[in-house]
Amino acid sequence: MLDSTNNEQLTKQNEALQNKLQSIDERMNERTHTHTHIKRLMESIREMQETKQMMVAAKEEEKKGFLARWFGGK
């Protein structure tokens, strides 16, 4: 009788551990998935910033070109 009680307790503990491990695994997968999305988002933001910087630089060059033509023509 003692052996069957011990076996039942061990079985319950084993099931509880399995559930806990599964829960941990699911949370790890969620974090990995979230991390991947954040990484992609950050890459997109960096690309947008670089594009904006290039646009500003191009506009500055256009202004310089205009001013150079304006004052150079005199």
Rank of each mutant, 00 (worst) to 15 (best):
72 G>E: 01
37 H>S: 07
4 S>D: 03
34 T>I: 10
34 T>P: 00
28 M>E: 07
11 T>V: 02
67 L>R: 12
17 L>Q: 03
56 V>S: 09
24 I>K: 13
32 T>S: 03
3 D>C: 02
60 E>P: 01
25 D>F: 10
8 E>H: 04
71 F>N: 09
50 E>N: 07
40 R>P: 00
65 G>T: 11
46 R>V: 02
24 I>C: 03
73 G>Q: 15
71 F>Y: 13
48 M>V: 11
35 H>G: 08
55 M>T: 12
35 H>W: 05
49 Q>D: 06
23 S>Y: 04
46 R>C: 00
64 K>T: 11
25 D>T: 14
54 M>C: 08
39 K>P: 00
11 T>H: 05
40 R>T: 09
32 T>Q: 05
27 R>A: 07
49 Q>I: 12
2 L>M: 08
43 E>K: 06
29 N>D: 10
51 T>E: 09
43 E>P: 00
65 G>N: 15
68 A>I: 14
43 E>Q: 05
14 N>P: 01
72 G>W: 03
45 I>G: 01
58 A>W: 05
12 K>S: 01
26 E>I: 13
23 S>G: 11
17 L>P: 00
20 K>S: 08
62 E>A: 14
67 L>S: 05
74 K>H: 11
9 Q>E: 03
19 N>T: 07
9 Q>A: 09
42 M>G: 01
58 A>Q: 14
56 V>F: 10
2 L>T: 05
26 E>D: 08
24 I>T: 09
19 N>V: 06
21 L>H: 06
65 G>L: 11
44 S>P: 00
50 E>H: 08
20 K>Q: 08
32 T>Y: 04
67 L>D: 05
10 L>R: 12
60 E>L: 14
34 T>L: 11
53 Q>W: 10
55 M>R: 15
70 W>T: 13
67 L>A: 06
65 G>R: 15
37 H>E: 12
5 T>E: 04
33 H>D: 07
28 M>G: 02
53 Q>S: 14
